[in-house]
Every structure is written in structure tokens, then in C-alpha cells.
Design a protein around this nucleic acid. Structure first.
Lengths: 205, 205
DNA sequence: ACTCGGTTTAACCATTTGGTTAAACACAAA
DNA sequence: TTTGTGTTTAACCAAATGGTTAAACCGAGT
């Protein structure tokens, strides 16, 4: 062993976790380097020793989280599943991701609005999600008379909206429904089914 | 006339408009009083002469915008319209509101996450949206065999999600679809119909 | 002519904040 | 023992920022 003299987690890891928490809760402007240092259990000097600047640190965190935001849309859409199966898989996996990263949406969307070009590049690279493929799939099923026509983009936007929005508006949803944190989680678990049903009911003939 | 010696708009109005713009674009933490003063065409001294502090000014703006966020849900839901008509009216009016206030969602949701209790009180007062009424409406139509059962909260969350989310993720949507600003607006105009159809197709039997 | 409130100018202040520095320390590997 | 690296301490810095102050200005109503 070279590193890790005393602490279980490496210091770098502790910093990254602390930074992630603080940035997610307060945003880059609201976050304070001191808070991050405190939460990581170290001092500011060491924080800057590891990550030269706030920007750099934020960059790291954002890169790490950006990939989670638009999940394996492409891989799911390119798979051999039927459209119905793809919808089910997409919604299920996405809501699961969000249950494990509840603050991800507001974090990412803020950065997208602050800095669209860079943020989008970091999320998608240069590869746009394959909506054409969705359109093709839909066209086939429409011809077979199994579903009503709908634009791929509309279908995708609707699905993503229904998955993400409840997490963005979580405090509101919990207040309106008087739900505890556990109940909110249950609600989202349920939505893995209800959203799929909602979508399928809508497009099926 | 007592006021308005030289300027067309009253100074207070100019400040409020400038502050609204800056706060909406940058958030309370990212906003600079100097920017607001500049955008209003005045100086910092006068800005503080009108609004004592950044907090106070933000408060004003937030109060003004908060009401727009959750529109006349109650009044629409309480009206004499059928469920189908209510859905159509709700989606149509809401998307119209958002077209005129595109940054409203991210602005409000950020404050809700920063400061849930106060923000929610300012948005809703103490009156929770009447989901029971929605449930009642649904129950009736289910008994009449006109629609499939669905929880009121799920229906509402889905509708609101599909209305708001595209505005939250606007840069992403425009990048994916290669849409200009005008095309985005058109897309949203179209969604006034497609979202309604999507919802109705889903719940109708 | 005088007053009064909106307005500007410009200096000023205190605090926060990101970031730096230097010295001392601890500990593991060589 | 020496060396190197991670770590702390603590002082320090410069810039940004919210906010204040005082003096002068200006123009409309009295």
C-alpha cells in the first residue's frame, strides 16, 4: 500500500463525495469551498491541494453525474426489444436511477441552463439520441395497426418528463400528498408501473 | 402627475423588470445587484433606495412569479366543465402561461428546493390543490365506464410534468431536435394538442 | 424663491470568499 | 535515518460583493 495511511476512504474520495453533496444541494454559486472541506472532514488548504479551484472541482462532479442523467437511452433504443418492452425498461431503469440520485435532475438542469453548450456536450458528447430509430419503430407498429401514430420526440419527451419531473418538484409533491420521504419513494416505485401503463394505454390501439 | 418626470416607465417598474430578468437567468446566488442596477439603467445607490436588500427584492419578484406557477388549477378543477374539458383547458392555458414565462419553472423549482417550506407557502398559501375533487370526477367516469381507473394525483402529476418539463430542459430539447427558438415555440404550441390527446387516449376506454 | 423627493456620483465599509503560503508535523517507504 | 508525500495550522491576500453615506444635482409643485 502506498496511499491511505489512516483513513478508510481515500481523501480524494471523501472530497468528491462532500463536493457532490454540497454542489447538488446548493448549486455552484451557493456552494462554499469551506462547507465542502468541513463536510469532507479536512481543511481548505488540503482541499485546494487536491483540486486547484472550485471550477475544477465542480467540473469533476458534473462530469461524473452528467452520464447518469441521460441513461442508456441509446443502448435501450438500439436493443432487440419490442417498443413496449423498451418503454417499460426505460421507465423502470430511469426511475431507479433517480431514486438513487434524487437531486440529479435539478443539478443537471441548472447547469444546462447556466451553460447550455458545454453542459450538453458533457452529457451527450456529440451524439444526439436516436429519435429516428424511435420514429421507425413507431411507424412499423402503426402500419401493423398496433398503435396510434405519435411523433418519436413527443413520446420520448412525455416519458422523460413523467420520470424526472416528480423529483424536481419533490417538496411540492410531498406537501400536496402529505407524503413522508418513505411514502414518496413508494410513490415513485409505483410510478415505474403506472407511468408505463399510462404511456402504453395512450399509444396502444 | 406627481411621479415620472422624465422616464416613460416608473423607476420602480424598471427595477422590478430588470431584477426579474437577472434573478430568472442567474438565480438568487448568481445574481448581482450591480447587474440589476445596470440592466435597469440606474445605479446601485438608487437600487438600494428602492429595495433595501437583495433578499427583499428577490422576495418581491418571487411573490410576483409564484402565483403564475400553479395556475388556476383550483378554479379549473372546481368549474362545471367535464373532466375531458378540464384537462384540455388546463394543458392549454398552462402551456400558454409557460410560453410567456419560459424561465418560470427553473426559477420556482430552484427556490422550492432551496427553501421548500416558505416557497410552497408563497405558491399555495395553505390551500392544497383539490386532488380529492379530481378523484371524485374520475370515480364517476369510471363507474359510467368512460375511462380507466387512475389516481388523481398520478393524472395531475403526469399532466403537469408534460407541460413543464420541456421548458426546464429547453436547451436539451432544442439541441436534440435541432430546433430554433421559433421552432421550439411551435413545438410547444403543438403540444397543447398532443399532450391533451396523449392524456385522453390514455385514460379513455 | 424655496422645498422636496428622486437621482447621481463617488467614495467608503465590512464581510465573504476563493485561493495562497510557509512552517511544522506524521508517517511510510527507501 | 532520510526522504517524500499527505496533512494541519494559521496567517494572509486580493477580489467581489452587498450595503451605506454624504454631498451635490435637478426638476416639478408650492
Amino acid at each position: 500500500m502506498i496511499k491511505e495511511r489512516k483513513n478508510d476512504k481515500s481523501t480524494e474520495q471523501k472530497i468528491l463525495e462532500a463536493a457532490k453533496q454540497v454542489f447538488m444541494e446548493k448549486g455552484i454559486d451557493g456552494a462554499r469551498m469551506q462547507d465542502i472541506a468541513d463536510k469532507a472532514g479536512i481543511n481548505k488548504a488540503l482541499l485546494h491541494y487536491y483540486f486547484r479551484s472550485k471550477e475544477k472541482l465542480f467540473e469533476m462532479i458534473f462530469m461524473e453525474e452528467a452520464r447518469k442523467f441521460m441513461p442508456k437511452v441509446t443502448s435501450i433504443m438500439m436493443s432487440e426489444l419490442t417498443l413496449f418492452e423498451k418503454i417499460e425498461k426505460f421507465v423502470g431503469e430511469y426511475i431507479d436511477t433517480l431514486l438513487q440520485n434524487p437531486l440529479l435532475p435539478i443539478f443537471i438542469l441548472n447547469e444546462i441552463n447556466r451553460n447550455p453548450k458545454d453542459a450538453i456536450k458533457k452529457i451527450f458528447g456529440n451524439q444526439r439520441p436516436p429519435i429516428d430509430k424511435v420514429d421507425e419503430l413507431i411507424t412499423k407498429l402503426v402500419k401493423k395497426g398496433e398503435i396510434k401514430p405519435i411523433k418519436g420526440i413527443e413520446l420520448m419527451v412525455n416519458m422523460v418528463s413523467m420520470c424526472i419531473f416528480p423529483f424536481l418538484a419533490r417538496p411540492m409533491v410531498q406537501w400536496i400528498t402529505k407524503a413522508t420521504d418513505e411514502e414518496f419513494v413508494k410513490l415513485m416505485e409505483m410510478r415505474k408501473k403506472t407511468v408505463v401503463k399510462f404511456v402504453l394505454d395512450s399509444i396502444k390501439k
